[in-house]
Amino acid sequence: GFDFTPATLPEQSFTDAIDDNHSDGQLLLMRAMIAAAYADGHIDETERQKIFAQVETMQLSVQEKAMLFDELRKPMQLSELVAAVPNAQMGIEVYAASASAIDLNQTVSKHYLDTLANQLCIPSELVMSIHRELNT
């Protein structure tokens, strides 16, 4: 688990993680979104289009784009995703990206998010706060 110390994460660290010079952070969030979209066992055409549109807005190398398209064929398992999260702040962003990509009307998708929050050690109050921001 992470050492969760509230009020010690500066805003800059959140935006740095996904700015153009930190494509590792962007890639991790994209991989999280793909894994979340796949939580119900398939990625439908709407989800695929959303992901493609997102990838096009990112400044990625040809290799990085190829990696994401491979990822669409074989999304990460939840355990792999959790293992790839380097710190608590990225954990929050990974959860927010996942929650924004997932269809919350599906029980299996809700369960996926619950498990993700649990494994990333995100407190339930913070989970609720993220959903308030997302309007979900």
Partner: peptide, 18 residues
């Protein structure tokens, strides 16, 4: 994705101020 970063920060800030 920039939106996700801003949103995560706002959610975290709200949480930490509770």
């Amino acid at each position: 994705l920039a939106a996700v970063g801003g949103l995560a920060w706002k959610a975290y800030k709200q949480y930490s101020e509770q």
